[in-house]
């Protein structure tokens, strides 16, 4: 392990701690929001936005996606595309059958 490598890791650790604090704060925030009893549609959107930000922090920094090689990003992009299909299309087939709640 070279000297510069160790220095590199030290800088990383600062980032990890910052991310950890952000995650803890966001957890408290999302719980706090739930006590405000916002309209359901709005509450779901807000909670999912917060969760996505948190997930992005974990994936980006703890899992190093932010500096990861392209091949892994491509795999995840493919995965995300199919995930999108899996979420949207079954829901779409419900449109013909009745009102789409909560929109």
């Amino acid at each position: 392990m070279s000297e510069s490598d160790v220095e590199h890791v030290r800088q990383h650790i600062k980032v990890y701690v910052t991310v950890f604090v952000a995650l803890a704060v966001l957890t408290v925030v999302t719980v706090g929001i739930s006590y405000l009893h916002l309209p359901t549609g709005f509450a779901i959107t807000l909670a999912m936005v917060v969760a996505t930000v948190k997930a992005g922090l974990v994936a980006g920094y703890f899992m190093h996606l932010i500096s990861e090689e392209k091949v892994i990003l491509w795999v995840l992009l493919l995965c995300a595309a199919f995930l999108f299909v899996l979420f949207i299309l079954p829901l779409g087939t419900q449109i013909g059958n009745g009102p789409l709640w909560p929109l």
Binding site: F82, V85, L89, G92, T93, I95, G96, N97
Partner: peptide
């Protein structure tokens, strides 16, 4: 990945889908 519901036309999924 985007064709599977052609097995399900008879389930009444609506004309759009």
């Amino acid at each position: 990945f985007g064709v599977w519901a052609h097995h399900m036309y008879m389930t009444g999924m609506g004309t759009t889908m």
